[in-house]
Amino acid sequence: MAYSDKVLDHYENPRNVGSLDKNDPQVGTGMVGAPACGDVMKLMIKVNDDGIIEDAKFKTYGCGSAIASSSLVTEWLKGRTIDEAYAIKNSEIAEELALPPVKIHCSVLAEDAIKAAVADIKAKQAAKESA
């Protein structure tokens, strides 16, 4: 199967690979997986006091499309609010990367990773406020 140029670009030069400090109260972590293909994706976001995402890092084990999807969203996330991040749809990711139908699930994985990371940071913020 032929990958689009954008997928190849992200696959060969993935942006923002790595980790943030998971114990940092400003860092939210999202982990998701797809048993069918064995893909695992970890997305970490650092959110400042204004609710803006300052940094995003990812680590993905999976096919080129899964890596490209997570690499792309780390670029998109920086500078957005967590609510804007939460609103990102997998269809936008799939469209940007021109993913074929059989690889749409990779973009679903990326969307779910964002939602999981946002949920994690919100839980951390709520815990801090009630403390």
Binding site: V32, G33, P35, V40, K59, I104, H105, V108, L109
Partner: peptide, 22 residues
């Protein structure tokens, strides 16, 4: 459908373990 594309949730510790194995 145990492997539905729309179901990406798994326990965090299991996914962490997955990452380590990978």
């Amino acid at each position: 459908d145990a492997v539905a594309d729309t179901n990406t949730a798994l326990p965090m510790d299991f996914l962490m373990q997955q990452m380590e194995w990978r």
